[in-house]
Amino acid sequence: MNTGVKIFLFVLAILAFYSYVGQMVPQKITYPPETAELAADMTTEELAVAGAEIVAGKGTCLGCHTIGSSDASLRFPDLGNIGAVAGSRIDGMSEIEYLAESLYDPDSYIVDRFLPGMPAIGKPPIGLTDDEILAVMAYLQSLGGTSTVTLATTHSFTGQGASGSDGAGATPSGGAAVALGAGLDGPGVFAAFLCGTCHTIDKPDRLVGPSLFDVGSRLSKAEIYEAVMDPDATLAEGYPGGVMPATLGASGFFQKVSPEEIRALVDYLASHTGE
């Protein structure tokens, strides 16, 4: 064999060997950290993806709403088909305007069979920014329909969102977007995790869950503690199981709340004896 060819094959063999060694060590790709910021040039599709994250996370929407559930006992409208029906809910109101209204001013139109109870998303405690709400709208449109919203989209509520349009502008008292160990007091925890959406505390009315107006006289502190941390352990008569664990779980309550905060919440609830 020609010397040149031999050398070439030899070099090739060495390179193959080193490549092999390279394959033998652990293989891992490191991706740059995800940035939650909404870039101005995001496409509608990217916006919808970001919106889905906000819906599940900061927006805490899934604490009440379901996506694609046909359960007859739903407490709040299912969003599985919202993209298809948003444009025809109110005569003369466009899809975008309807979605914006239902996020910024939820009580102005209540879907049949449901009760009012949704907080304005653009205001504290949830306090999404205008841009974040646009992302949520893009996602909602994609549920059963086609997204058209971009960050350049405007509607009659533009400018009414929480301040700070850089996407990171969660207000300090910020809803369920509380950071780990924010050190809240009892009423703070009650507000932050939106307990009031399902429970009344200052009047004996029933909402989705039992009123907590007189909880301090009905239950001991230990029982309240159990009812918060493991809601299905003892169910109040007439209420279905599974609702509260799912709702609280979705809001990240069990991960985010600290022992001190739970203690404060229990004390706060125990002080409500119905008088």
Partner: peptide
């Protein structure tokens, strides 16, 4: 951080306790 994934550690975040 993400680079030490897959991480199955059970160590709690003690800052809350």
């Amino acid at each position: 951080p993400s680079e030490s994934t897959p991480w199955l550690s059970a160590m709690p975040a003690w800052e809350t306790f």
